[in-house]
Design a protein around this nucleic acid. Sequence first.
DNA 1: CGCTCTTGTTAGTAATCACTCAATGCCAAC
DNA 2: GTTGGCATTGAGTGATTACTAACAAGAGCG
Lengths: 205, 205
Amino acid sequence: MSQQMSQQASQQASQQASQQTTTSRMSGPARREQILAAARKVFAEDGYAASTDQVARAAGVSQPYVVRLFGTKRDLFVEAYTHATAEVCATLAAVPAGPDADARMGAAYVELLADRDLLRLVMHGFVAGNDPEVGRAARACLGEAYRLFVERSGGTPEQGRDFVAMGMLVNVLLAVGADAHVGESEGMDALLACVDSSIEEVRGA
Amino acid sequence: MSQQMSQQASQQASQQASQQTTTSRMSGPARREQILAAARKVFAEDGYAASTDQVARAAGVSQPYVVRLFGTKRDLFVEAYTHATAEVCATLAAVPAGPDADARMGAAYVELLADRDLLRLVMHGFVAGNDPEVGRAARACLGEAYRLFVERSGGTPEQGRDFVAMGMLVNVLLAVGADAHVGESEGMDALLACVDSSIEEVRGA
DNA sequence: CGCTCTTGTTAGTAATCACTCAATGCCAAC
DNA sequence: GTTGGCATTGAGTGATTACTAACAAGAGCG
């Protein structure tokens, strides 16, 4: 499955990266962050199955250099993944408590939807959970999302559960490309319409 | 990540399969189904990244034979995946309409929880959705689950959405091994307790 | 027994993988 | 202006990959 798809995907990524990449010399930490950004994009697309070569081409660097900077492909993935989950948690944690905090939490998550790569990467970590460190980060992110919602909104456990569940539904719909295949199945169309209206509702609040 | 883990995992699978495998000659379709069952287990563990060799060892067959019978690793994955999604849909479709149909739909899904491999495989398909055929099967399954719930229970679109969302939450919690890591994060513990009580509630109904 | 079809294997191939090694240029400090 | 450290690469290695080709063996049938 990943042969044709990831080939052309990485070609696209390499093209668009080589345009924006300064081929000249960079400082170590700066290059590290650039590679991490590329890794986030590539891993979001193909998950852990993406190769370090794809990441290197997306960053405009040679492949040995990315493993030199990060030690191991697994280390790179774990670092990119923990960054992503931390970003999600930070966004939710930035919502202050108070009246209508539940709606503002929902709006904060909807804001995250703009960055498709972020949520796709988080999703990939959910199924790559047999790696102990990835699994721990994934569980921590889910638990924090629940805890923050209940704490900030003062809602019941059931409301917290529903908040996280709704987030997972949106994640999955995004991952399977539901928005890009409207008109394929009537059930999916109706589900998508219902979720979309909820998103618009929370966005307006 | 998958190196050490999948190695020992496939060794376990091969051992337990070689015990239950009739090494003698089998009929073609029977062997096909046996390999499909093995593929379901292996793909549930490691996703599409699992090798045909792992599947072959789990089935107690040589590796070239599994690609001979199924043509391509991708074909094998797609067939195993469509079988899994069809099983989920069939289970939900078996719930008759009537009063308390919503609770019975929930109970039917909880029944599916007993087969961890099934839901883990379905989850893997959700993130492998860049493959067109896998993505289509995943979207069809989600759409059908929603449609069936609304049709059988006569509920509102919002209730249907919440049903599917709850299913996704349970899937994710299962995939990240939340039940196997209790006591790690207080937020996750509270979330898991809330979901568990909901499951027990629907199980009793 | 012989003939043939299906079941199954061993041996092999080309590609890709993560990762290593040794080297090369660049920049700043002395 | 030479020295030394940092950024970066090309070339290579061994392992694993999906997949192929050719061949062995068993079962039904005349």
